[in-house]
Amino acid sequence: MIADLLLAAAIAAVATGSVLARRAFTAVALFIAYGLLLSLAWVRLAAPDVAMTEAAIGAGLSGVLLLGAVRRLGPHADAPANLPPGLLLTALIGIGCAGVAAALGAAILWLPEPAPTLAPQVAAALPTTGLGNAVTGVLMSFRGLDTLLEAAVVVLAVIAVWSLAPDGGWGSAPGARQPVVGRGPLSLLARMLPPIGIVVAAHILWVGADAPGGKFQAAAILAAMWLLPWLAGLATPPRIAAPWLRMAVVAGPVLFIVVGLAGAAVEGAFLAYPPGWAKPLIKSIEVVLTASIAVALALLVMGPPEPDAPR
């Protein structure tokens, strides 16, 4: 109770600091702290799957992405795109936002009691999937369509980010070339961590069927294990024209859709798994999807291909 209050106060303080920070770098640093504290809140809310994802993607990958953006923008990061609103307007916006927050808080306090829930239905239907982790069951079976579409959104994001490439660099490797740091501590980390990280990711993916964990968390860790050597200048990403790279990004989503269409052909409904086949099919989709999402997440962090990147 007191711990929750302290945690909530800390999160609110860090969020306020991040939003109001004068310098972009400070804001991003506070934002990373925000993500990490938020994942503690998720633990307190008995959602370990979300806690891991929030820490890995919300704080980790987003943090790397935004820090990189601040560094590359340099003074531009703090430069206003247009004039800041005047004092009066700011005050009005502040009052409006406080009103929204207050209305929202009231609505949350007045949510019906007992809370409507699908937990009993999920628990009743879960055995037919052969899975032990209810969240994985929802993601891969009951609401499998959402997960499939989300995988498609990630592919689309890669296409969209690449479409923002400056002219002249088409087909080259994504992202700005990173300076080689040689024998420094980052280089050491970039050499030592990936093997460990890959084992951890495989573990998280494997237990995800029955325990907290799963493809998003594993994919985020795998992506980080690729980004680390890239940041250290040890690994050059492949050219975006490379066929295998593009195949890797889409393999998981394609497999997912094909299994879904096969379900429509055989069982009469998209994403219907034949009886007894649910768990092996879900596991296979998850393994391939993890690899695809990992590659896509890393590519999204690296950014569009640059003309000055190695050809």
Binding site: G184, P185, L193
Partner: peptide, 9 residues
């Protein structure tokens, strides 16, 4: 490991 790497950086 990570703090040993990050500290010097």
């Amino acid at each position: 490991l990570s703090s040993a790497a990050v500290g010097p950086m």
